[in-house]
Design a protein around this nucleic acid. Sequence first.
RNA 1: GAUUCCGUAGCUCAGCUGGUAGAGCAAUACACUUUUAAUGUAUGGGCCCUGGGUUCGAAUCCCAGCGGGAUCACCA
Length: 572
Amino acid sequence: MNNMSAFELSEQEIQRRESLNKLREMGINPYPADLYPVTDYATVIKDKFEEGKQVCLAGRMMSQRDMGKASFAELQDSSGRIQLYFNRDEICPGEDKTMYNQVFKKLLDLGDFIGVKGYMFTTKVGETSVHVQEFTLLSKSLKPLPLPKTDAEGRIHDAFTDPEMRYRQRYADLVVNPHVKEIFIKRTKLFTAMRQFFNDAGYMEVETPVLQPIPGGAAARPFMTHHNALDIPLYMRIANELYLKRLIVGGFDGVYEFSKNFRNEGMDRTHNPEFTAMEIYVSYKDYNWMMDFTERLLEYCAVEVNGSSETTFGEHKINFKAPYKRVTMRQSIIDFTGFDIDGKSEEELFNAAKGMGIAVDTTMGKGKLIDEIFGEKCEGNYIQPTFITDYPKEMSPLCKEHRDNPELTERFELMVCGKEVANAYSELNDPIDQRERFEEQVRLAEKGDDEAGQFIDYDFLRSLEYGMPPTSGMGIGMDRLIMYLTNNPSIQEVLFFPQMRPEVHAVKVELSDNEKVIFDIIQKEGEMDLNSLKLKSGLSGKQWDVSIKALTKQGILKVTKTEDSLSVGMAE
RNA sequence: GAUUCCGUAGCUCAGCUGGUAGAGCAAUACACUUUUAAUGUAUGGGCCCUGGGUUCGAAUCCCAGCGGGAUCACCA
């Protein structure tokens, strides 16, 4: 309802609209189409100050200090802020002082985009500024920004901090919170660095399907959708692993992809329904090579993003400098519990886990029990980057059996701050073994293990039958990694637009029973004659009068006059 | 899903054991030609998240709901 939303405008929003109209009346287009010939950026000209240099820049006006016939303002562009100096008689050299007195002082608002031309100078107080000779309104801002202020000591007052509003209105967050912008610049630097590292190594960035007929490569609840033309169900990918391996079968030596994955599961501080994983597969390598590669990669990325391999996460200082410690899962469990899992039966593992106070149940197999012990007693202790190697076989259906121990797999996870950041295998390339492992997963799923995959991707098995070279693959949770590199404990802080419950827009108007009767008729039958509506409603004259007046007053229904009658319909 | 905290002006927040709303910034008006959280004076601005209940009276107390945060549980 347009009139309702207009009704809800705040005082300041109304004032800005009035300013907009006045500008138009003065012949100033608040949204001009022409390009503005920007030649300079705020922080660049501040860093390379040249007295008297002519500059032209554009951005948002973020503060205004009006001193009568002269004023100061701050301009914020993509690089940062710079102070502007406006002098009435220089902006308006002639008799007509409108541009300064009216346009600049009255009709411009904080947040408006302006372009300025002028020259560099330093004020009495020593602030490098632009002495403005000419300014142009480039775009009017109709909604006041949640503008914080920074004092002389650099303390921020009235910071825009409400997480709900910051995430829902990220655009405003980015305008007023420079440190937020910095996180996303670093995020992009991380992606760029990683690409660089892979490309330098000669590997190829590829794209594989997001819509998949079988959601494979991980165990997670997928988002389901439907393709109308084919009339088949499709799934949003939960992982891209099986497609990248097909490309290795096809003959590429190294392929990688930054993959948006989608999992229809819970959301919390470290989980968003869509997230980004990077996966890379390199042929003729094994997981030992991949550990060397991974630690060099992460050191490189940390330095590219932060200028140092060291980073702070909460109370921890982390150093991504290679090499990282390598600990087998067996040794890790010995280290933290004194219990040796080697050669133990399922019953022995069950009792050991129970003895450690871990919640166990009889559906858990050996692998699951070991995983529980590790997760409960060991995982959290690895603060510095550490490779945990040689996972039990049942937990890793896509991973090659360990060369020395058939109960284990050639798998590692990289732990940082007690959480998994990377996961890698010597990839299983035996098609018969792979088929059996898939079938085992299906059996587990039927038994009720909701972590096991329910689908078998026969096309993937077919590709393996043609032969896949020995290959090592590695995946990195990009969101989690950037959380570590920017010291953010919440995934929402490193995603531009984290998933939120939709905002409720509908203005709830409580209707009385009589009003509802009338409203329902119009809703069902559309616009109709006023008198027939009155008859149809069955209301008394008084009830009718009160109700119809209330409905029109609230802007829900509208009465329009035709030639010789009145008709009632929904308001816009 | 459980527990817990929060929701008041455009923003950040006060508002006590219930008595129909306050501050700073932002806005409006006036003054001020090198200020910088500019300053001074004046003014305007509120579905106190929603719906019930208790009460003579609810922003405040109780219940339910909605939205958000945190912790836990879940999570290849």
